[in-house]
């Protein structure tokens, strides 16, 4: 099977400081990969390099495109990468405000990606937007309201709808449940699990919350000081950690 995403030797330095160093992994269709590590471990740098928001110093990010097969997205021309960014890729920010247009209605937010790829029928765009609001459990009668009038959890769900409306195959998520109340987190996790299953999505989720990766991710990578120290099946890494740092991380979680 061809991996959907194949990261090879990805390295990013900030001067003498290491962002991420020689990271390699394959992600297969339908798989959810979690990346954990403490602040400054390089997980966000890695995510941004993969998603094309940052230019890595070395390495390749091969994506299995629909038309041409695996293509190195680092070397890809900017227009093609942007097109990928609004069709086959999605990026869910930790803060919904970074991923939404706060001055535009919920419907406009969801419809933007459709219009960006050429949708020019208002009625069809609006129907699709309404349909997606329902799928993320936002009432359709809020379609003309601006995101600023939504709660934090609703904003995050709106951001997800806005990202998934073009039927992407790969979703990058940066702390998708961070900053949300625990009760709201649970609903979002359930929603994401359902969407991943129904749409056959592959996802890369960066988080520092081990409970989130246990419930969402099939596989797990543990990062420290820009390096991957351990990787494997999520429950195996959490229940039988091999690396000292992972053992420390797992044993540091507060029990409820």
């Amino acid at each position: 099977m061809t991996p959907l995403l194949s990261v090879q030797g990805l390295t990013k330095r900030y001067g003498r400081h290491v962002g991420c160093l020689d990271v390699s992994f394959d992600l297969f269709p339908g798989e959810v990969m979690g990346i954990v590590g403490e602040s400054g471990s390089g997980k966000s740098t890695l995510l941004n390099c993969m998603a094309g928001h940052m230019v890595p110093d070395a390495g390749r990010v091969m994506f299995d495109t629909r038309t041409e097969g695996p293509v190195d997205t680092v070397a890809m021309a900017e227009p093609a990468r942007r097109m990928l960014g609004r069709t086959d890729w999605a990026f869910v920010h930790q803060h919904a405000r970074d991923g939404l247009r706060m001055g535009v209605s919920a419907g406009g937010n969801v419809g933007e990606r459709l219009m960006a790829v050429g949708a020019r029928n208002y009625g069809a765009i609006r129907t699709a937007a309404g349909d997606w609001l329902e799928r993320v459990e936002i009432s359709v009668d809020r379609i003309d309201d601006r995101p600023g009038t939504f709660s934090g959890g609703m904003q995050q769900r709106l951001q997800i709808a806005r990202n998934l409306v073009t039927g992407p195959r790969l979703v990058f998520m940066d702390e998708p449940t961070g900053g949300l109340d625990v009760s709201v987190q649970a609903r979002l996790l359930d929603l994401l699990r359902g969407l991943v299953r129904k749409m056959g999505l592959s996802a890369v989720i960066v988080t520092h919350d081990l409970a989130v990766v246990r419930l969402l991710a099939d596989r797990l990578m543990v990062m420290k000081d820009g390096r991957v120290v351990e990787a494997g099946l999520t429950d195996q890494v959490l229940d039988d950690p091999q690396h000292g740092y992972t053992q420390l991380l797992v044993s540091s979680v507060l029990q409820v």
Partner: peptide, 12 residues
Amino acid sequence: GLMHVKLYEDIA
């Protein structure tokens, strides 16, 4: 795409 978002908002 954003340009049409403006027109979309108008109609909405």
